[in-house]
């Protein structure tokens, strides 16, 4: 009978071990650039990861504590019979302990309230509209089945004018710069998810939702759709390119505009056929 405690112990140990191993593996841990497993690339990402870690430590401690008690009691307090078939030991006759109840109500309660209060600030700075950076929106992203239509203001600097640059599934922005986008949907619900930046926001038809973020690392990342949007939900991947400098970004925009305004084939571009 005692052996059953080993099963419970093993489950608990394996659970803890998985999370102990995770930071040492590139794809068990939080999504980060492939070569920098512990480098979160956005300011919000760092805050969110820290909060995640705090909760992980607190819940980890509670988990270990409760599992130790559970395993110990299922080892120690197993019913055993003597040679006459009588129990070796009587169970404690107790209906509880008020002091204990108060302790284990107040302490977790205080921790939970602390956690909630401690997190509000981050939440507000990521989502409250009053916290949105006072910058012109970089782009308007409209989700539709099954792609992200990204519209950058053209040379006139205004969105929704005929000179806009419109690209599909190809989102570009600049490193170390507060970036603001307007998120829309033209059909069903979608969710704009930047795993490496820890940004997620549903796109809702009929609403225009501002989303803002930054990144301290240039490179290639991706947009995932995190809200079921139909048969092609899994196909809704977008590419994210974070440019080193504003100049790079502007160069990309002007290249794209040149392509978008193309009215004749040239020998070189014709073979490219972009």
């Amino acid at each position: 009978m005692r052996n059953w405690s080993i099963l419970f112990a093993l489950a608990a140990i394996a659970s803890v071990a998985a999370f102990l191993y995770a930071p040492f593996s590139a794809d068990w841990w939080l999504p980060n650039p492939p070569d920098q497993t512990h480098h979160v690339i956005s300011a919000f990402g760092r805050e969110i990861d820290n909060l995640f870690l705090i909760i992980l430590f607190i819940t980890g401690a509670v988990f270990i504590g409760t599992q130790v008690v559970l395993v110990y009691s299922s080892y120690k307090f197993v019913d055993e019979m003597d040679e006459h078939g009588k129990p070796k030991r009587a169970a404690t006759y107790s209906h509880g302990n008020n002091r204990l109840e108060v302790i284990w109500t107040i302490i977790p309660g205080a921790i939970l309230v602390f956690l909630a209060v401690y997190q509000v600030g981050t939440w507000a700075s990521i989502k409250f509209r009053s916290a949105a950076p006072r910058v012109a929106p970089l782009a308007e992203i409209t989700a539709r089945q099954f792609q992200w239509v990204i519209r950058y203001p053209g040379p006139d600097g205004r969105l929704n004018s005929p000179d806009d640059l419109v690209v599909v599934n190809d989102f570009h922005f600049v490193k170390n710069k507060q970036t603001l986008i307007y998120l829309k949907s033209s059909d069903v619900l979608h969710s704009f998810y930047l795993p490496h930046l820890r940004i997620k926001q549903d796109a809702v038809p009929g609403l225009t939702i501002p989303v803002w973020f930054d990144s301290d690392t240039a490179g290639s990342f991706e947009i995932a759709c995190a809200e079921l949007c139909g048969w092609g939900h899994y196909k809704m991947r977008g590419k994210v390119t974070i440019h080193e400098t504003e100049t790079d970004f502007q160069r990309w925009v002007s290249d794209q505009l040149t392509e978008q305004n193309k009215s004749q084939l040239t020998m070189t571009a014709g073979a490219e056929g972009r």
Binding site: L30, I55, A116, K127
Partner: peptide, 14 residues
Amino acid sequence: IFMAASPVDIHIHD
């Protein structure tokens, strides 16, 4: 509790 914490939920939601 991870999901209850709304900032952490941003990442792990869905």
